[in-house]
Simulated scan of single mutants.
Amino acid sequence: MLKTIYNRIRLFMLRRKEPYTLFYNILGFYPKNIQLYEQACLHRSSSIRTEKGRWINNERLEFLGDAILDAIVADVVFKTFDSKKEGFLTNTRSKIVQRETLNKLAVQIGLDKLIISSMKTNSHNNYMYGNAFEAFIGAIYLDQGYNVCKKFVEERVIAPYINLSKVAKKEFNFKSRLIEWCQKQKISIEFSLVESFVDHDNNPVFQSQAQLGGLSGGIGIGYSKKESQQNAARMALKKLHNDKTYYDAVIATRTVIKNEAGENDNTPIDELPNDATLHEEENTPALPN
């Protein structure tokens, strides 16, 4: 209680009241070292220097915040799902700390409005929101310590914005799922880079193709090879579900294995797992004009 009163008095004594208020609205407490939070909001394109002429941005804080956030989310997931195995816990944590989720969280808590950048907003550099969110976590850790940082993530991020049970059930690793299915069906699978180029903001763009039994399942687009492969896998899974001609053609490429008696292995073909997320709106970014 006394600490809260002290911080309020300290706030009124400061000349730069507005930044403290803005950060308080997000954090729920007043920063001790506001410069950490201001730096967390500096994208590398902001072209800001210190008084000594050194360039500053949020990349170092992002590195630290990434590790701290991983630890906090792992702790929360571990305690929430007390009967689940390591693979489930790892997968659930990955869904929470993936870039798309962090982008949304940054917007939901209002952090996007504080980010300083000279870049135009588009589907790729929106990643700056997720990066800034991680940097913000790093700033909290340095300013207040781990316990306060953990409390912030639990009470002001996860509790109001993330349904852990729903997230745990959501499918997002389409590449792993497709590879697993192909392995069970004895079908070859390959992800190949079709093309790479840069957009108008000089950001790299990748196009990857998923080939099942040598047959194209579609081309995925992304701002990293990993993202483009995930999108290609998602397209291939949708094509397997919705295009029977393609499904039959892929199945026809199965490798026939001889059993010990010299007869063909006629193991029944597993059905594709039903997943409603395949029918949601695509998250593949649009190509630049």
Results as ranks from 00 to 15, higher is better:
58 N>W: 10
280 E>L: 15
244 K>E: 03
258 K>W: 07
96 I>S: 09
276 A>T: 05
239 K>Q: 04
277 T>F: 15
8 R>H: 04
247 Y>T: 00
257 I>R: 06
269 I>S: 02
185 Q>E: 09
247 Y>W: 03
151 K>Q: 00
140 I>V: 01
282 E>M: 13
183 Q>N: 15
158 I>Q: 05
132 A>Y: 11
105 L>M: 07
244 K>T: 12
259 N>H: 10
175 K>V: 09
61 L>T: 15
166 K>Y: 14
186 K>A: 05
16 R>L: 11
56 I>N: 05
85 K>G: 15
122 N>G: 02
70 D>T: 09
222 G>S: 13
240 L>C: 03
174 F>Y: 07
85 K>R: 15
262 G>R: 14
24 Y>K: 06
49 R>H: 08
160 P>E: 03
72 I>H: 02
158 I>P: 12
26 I>G: 01
278 L>I: 01
94 S>Y: 01
168 A>S: 08
262 G>V: 12
53 G>N: 10
193 L>F: 09
203 N>S: 12
277 T>E: 15
63 F>Y: 13
132 A>G: 14
102 L>C: 10
148 V>T: 06
22 L>E: 06
59 E>G: 11
16 R>V: 08
13 M>I: 04
106 A>R: 04
268 P>E: 06
183 Q>Y: 01
38 E>H: 00
184 K>W: 10
77 V>R: 02
129 Y>S: 05
